[in-house]
């Protein structure tokens, strides 16, 4: 990309400022003198101004007569919408807080009831000591060689275990 010629840029900017009336009085006089001496500058300035003046052919559309009304209606709805949204948000937040409080209360009540009942009735959770025998009979202390209930029953059923039957 080539950089623009500084002289050309400066000239174009001066022509542009001259058209816009943005040159100071001194600068305007100097530019006028320069154009008098330099016909090519005069031509360039005139062509640029002529092109600029053609912009008066750009469309100047008439706005839709209902634009103001439509915008005002939108604004009214917008304001109401903002208001109702805010109210709805606040109401929603309150409802969530209330539901949260209700649930917390209910859970606390249930937990309280559970522990109170437990304390009063003495119900404990079942121990995991499932190896504890149903009957308290230490078979090992009777006969150490007996290792199972079946062996113990066989030992009990021995014919002379409790003496011989009476004749």
């Amino acid at each position: 990309m080539t950089s623009p010629d500084p002289d050309a840029t400066s000239k174009a900017e001066r022509i542009s400022a001259w058209i816009d009336g943005e040159l100071s009085e001194d600068a305007k006089d100097r530019f006028g003198e320069e154009m008098g001496k330099d016909p090519s500058l005069r031509l360039e300035a005139d062509l640029t101004k002529a092109a600029w003046d053609l912009l008066s052919h750009l469309p100047k559309p008439e706005p839709n007569p209902s634009l103001t009304q439509k915008t005002m209606t939108l604004l009214q709805f917008g304001e109401l919408g903002v208001a109702s949204n805010t109210s709805a948000k606040k109401a929603g937040q309150s409802a969530i807080v209330m539901i949260g409080l209700w649930w917390t209360g209910l859970v606390m009540l249930l937990l309280g009831s559970f522990f109170a009942t437990r304390a009063m009735t003495g119900i404990h959770s079942r121990t995991t000591d499932s190896k504890e025998p149903f009957f308290w009979l230490d078979t090992a202390s009777v006969r150490p060689e007996i290792r199972s209930d079946t062996e113990f029953l066989k030992w009990l059923a021995a014919p002379d275990r409790f003496g011989s039957p009476e004749p």
């Binding site: 840029t9 174009a12 900017e13 022509i15 542009s16 400022a17 058209i19 816009d20 943005e22 062509l47 640029t48 002529a50 092109a51 600029w52 053609l54 912009l55």
Partner: peptide, 21 residues
Amino acid sequence: VKSLLARARANLREALEPIIS
């Protein structure tokens, strides 16, 4: 802005040259 308008005018002049001259 000055530079922007100067370039815009130069471009407009170029585009409209067949009409103005």
